[in-house]
Each structure stands twice: as C-alpha cells, then as structure tokens.
Design a protein around this nucleic acid. Structure first.
Length: 201
DNA sequence: ACGCCCAGAATAAATACGCC
DNA sequence: GGCGTATTTATTCTGGGCGT
C-alpha cells in the first residue's frame, strides 16, 4: 500500500533524500552556523531533539511544514527569509586598499569597493582627482543616483548647469540622469568617497 | 560537547470494507 | 455511488547511546 509520500523516487535515492530535502537541510545548517549554534543548541531553542536537526541537515528526512516552522521558531528568521536566504558562503566584508581594483580610464583614479559583488545595489568608489583633472568636456549622464563626500582638496561639481566648489566634509547627491561633470580646480589632489546606486561595471 | 546512528513510537495518507 | 470507519503502510520524530 502506498504511504503518504507516494511520489516515485529515483532508484539511487534513499527515502526522504529529495532535492528539496537537501536544500532545506543545507539551508538549515548554513543558518545554524550563521548563528554559531550547535545542533543541540538549536534543538533546545526549537523544542525538538538534536537527532531531528541532524536528520534534516543530512537530507535524510523532508520535514513537514509544521516541523520546519517549529525549528525555525527557534531561529530569528521567517519561513520566507529562510527560503530566500543567499547561501553563497560568507561574502567578503572588509577590503584592503590593494583589493580595490582601479576602474575607468584617464588621470582620475577610481577604486571600486567590493569588486566581486556581481549584482550590487550600491557601488562605492574611492576617487582621487589630480590638480586640474576633470571628467571631460562632455557632461556625463547615467542611471540611478550618485553621491559623495570630499575627504581632502577641492572638487568642482557641475549638475544641470549649476556649479559648486566643494571642500573637505562637503558632499553632493543627485540623480545621475542629470548632466553632470567633476573637476579639481585646486593645487593638490582631491580625494573623495562616492557612491552610486547603479553598478559601475 | 559534538554529530551521527538505531530502535521504537507517533503520525498521516491511501486503501478496504460495510452501511445507507 | 456516497459516506464513515477500520486497517495498512510509509514516513517522521524521539530517546538513548556511540565514537570522536
């Protein structure tokens, strides 16, 4: 007689060793490690046994929705967040100067933070404008918003016909679709940190 | 303390059966 | 045929124990 799980299983798979089960197990293990808990610690928080956690993580069982919810009750994470969580390992958090590649061309030095982030929601640049350098005679346009804060030196920013010379501590923020241009009118390098809400590369 | 394994209990779904 | 109940079966889950 058929049990409650009458779906045909590939011969090489053991009972309960479904792809979905693997995924849940891998996710559960990743989330548990994220919080630095042992199987017993998580089991204690969730009100289940450590064996249950072990079986789920190994993909030996495909937990019911009720059981999974019970386990996740022991973790500060919702069911939806659990299934949408990115498991690409621990993304790099800190970056040394030498790990920030130079992007763009010309005399202006622009170094991109988190270059390995394939789909960034935010691009951060460490920029150095030598004296007299600028982004060119043609006004720039793009997508998203841009913003920045001058660290040292002076920076002339022109946006849609309006210009201002910014010094240390000053900043700018505008929609990149507005024609704009940057120039260093000073005698020393201008260093700033800028951000763009659209990928640079 | 950790993760894993095992045997048994509990649970849920499919099926069989009897009654109307 | 439709409905309710009993039985069967597969799966999940627990408690205890093992090796590291």
């Amino acid at each position: 007689m058929a049990g409650r799980d009458s779906l045909p299983q590939p011969p090489e798979q053991s009972p309960g060793d479904t792809g979905a089960g693997d995924d849940v197990g891998v996710r559960l293990k990743a989330v548990r490690k994220l919080y630095g808990w042992s199987q017993r610690q998580l089991a204690g928080r969730a009100g289940v046994t450590n064996a249950t956690i072990s079986l789920i993580e190994q993909g030996r069982v495909s937990p019911s929705v009720g059981s999974l919810k019970k386990v996740l009750d022991g973790i500060p994470i919702s069911l939806s967040d659990f299934f949408t969580l990115q498991l690409d390992g621990n993304p790099q958090v800190f970056f040394r100067a030498k790990e920030m590649p130079r992007v763009g061309e010309g005399s202006i030095e622009q170094r991109l933070l988190a270059p390995d982030n394939e789909e960034p929601s935010l691009s951060l640049l460490y920029e150095t404008y030598p004296p007299g350098s600028d982004t060119g005679p043609e006004l720039l346009t793009g997508e998203g918003d841009v913003g920045g804060v001058v660290i040292s030196g002076r920076l002339e920013v022109t946006v849609a016909g309006e210009s201002a010379v910014l010094g240390p501590g000053d900043g700018y923020c505008f929609s990149s679709c507005r024609p704009h241009r940057f120039r260093n009118p000073g005698e020393v390098d201008c260093v700033l940190v800028s951000a763009k809400s659209h990928p640079i590369v």
